[in-house]
Amino acid sequence: MESHEDDHQLLVTPAATADTFDRTTARRAPMMIVDQVRALMRAGLLVAGDRLPSERELGDRFGVSRVTVREALRTLETHGLVTIRVGIHGGAYITAPTGVRVIESIADVLALSVNEAADVVEARQAFELGILPVVCDRADQNDIQDLFAICDRSEAVHSTNGDLGSLSAEFHIRVARASHNAAIELLALSFYSPLLMMSKQAGGPPETGEFRSFVSAVAEKNVRGAATIMNRLLAHGGV
């Protein structure tokens, strides 16, 4: 016997039935369908586990062909927003995008769209300076120890003229994690890879001593001091 929970998985949420979807036009119809599904997810009218109506039903509601609906569903699946199942309980099911999928999407946009070094520096200043009040307020002893450990490794690599790029990226991401805010950490992970690549083109190596001074300022909850040091690092093009 199937559980009531299993039955619920086969239904669209009550709020997302009947007049939920608006009819669309032929031009850009697949993307308009994708946009409507995204909007419903953001509004909480479609949640992970809900099954969308059949291709025929969606076609009738949107006023488009099943081929158009199929293209929209493939796009939603590519973006990690639906899972297509086959079999007796088959159909398109809403699924929450994973952190990895979100990271890859944002990183792709940045890598393919941002080319100017000045834009990279400006974006990093807005983000990294903006999170410092939260980081300084919430960073705990474990955060400080981890950041100092990265400083130790960076200084060891610097003494042998090694590549500090990956350690620098690790440092900045660990700073974001010290905010204890999952959204901030996700954003740092999303854009740091392409920004790191373009920053290498823009400027010289980071100053390892500045990293240690920055951590000390965070440990002292000195937002102004931490911001001054981070600004100095970014202004010189250091990663």
Rank of each mutant, 00 (worst) to 15 (best):
E5N: 09
D6N: 08
D6K: 12
H8D: 10
Q9E: 13
L10H: 05
L11H: 07
L11E: 12
L11K: 07
L11A: 07
V12P: 02
T13Q: 12
A16M: 05
R23L: 07
T24F: 05
T24Q: 07
T25L: 11
R27T: 07
M31C: 04
M31P: 03
M32K: 11
I33G: 02
Q36V: 09
V37M: 04
V37A: 04
R38W: 05
A43H: 02
L46R: 02
V47P: 02
L52S: 02
E55Q: 15
R61A: 15
R66Y: 08
T68A: 07
R74Q: 13
L76W: 00
E77W: 02
G80L: 00
L81T: 00
V82I: 15
V82S: 00
T83Y: 03
I88R: 13
H89W: 06
T95R: 10
T95I: 13
T95W: 02
A96Q: 13
G99F: 14
V100W: 09
E104F: 10
I106K: 02
D108S: 11
L110P: 00
V114N: 02
V114R: 01
D119H: 10
V120K: 00
V120G: 01
E122D: 14
R124T: 01
A126Y: 09
F127N: 01
F127I: 03
G130S: 14
G130R: 14
P133N: 15
V135T: 08
R138F: 06
N142A: 14
Q145R: 10
F148P: 00
D152V: 04
R153C: 01
S154V: 04
A156R: 15
V157E: 14
H158F: 15
S159M: 11
N161F: 11
N161S: 12
E170V: 05
E170A: 14
F171P: 02
F171A: 01
H172D: 09
I173S: 06
V175H: 01
A178V: 06
H180C: 12
N181S: 15
A183I: 12
F191Q: 06
S193N: 06
S193K: 12
L195N: 06
L196R: 15
M197S: 11
M198G: 10
S199V: 02
A202W: 05
P206G: 06
E207H: 12
G209W: 11
R212V: 06
A217S: 14
V218L: 13
V218R: 03
V223I: 13
N231K: 06
R232P: 00
L233G: 01
L234G: 01
V239R: 04
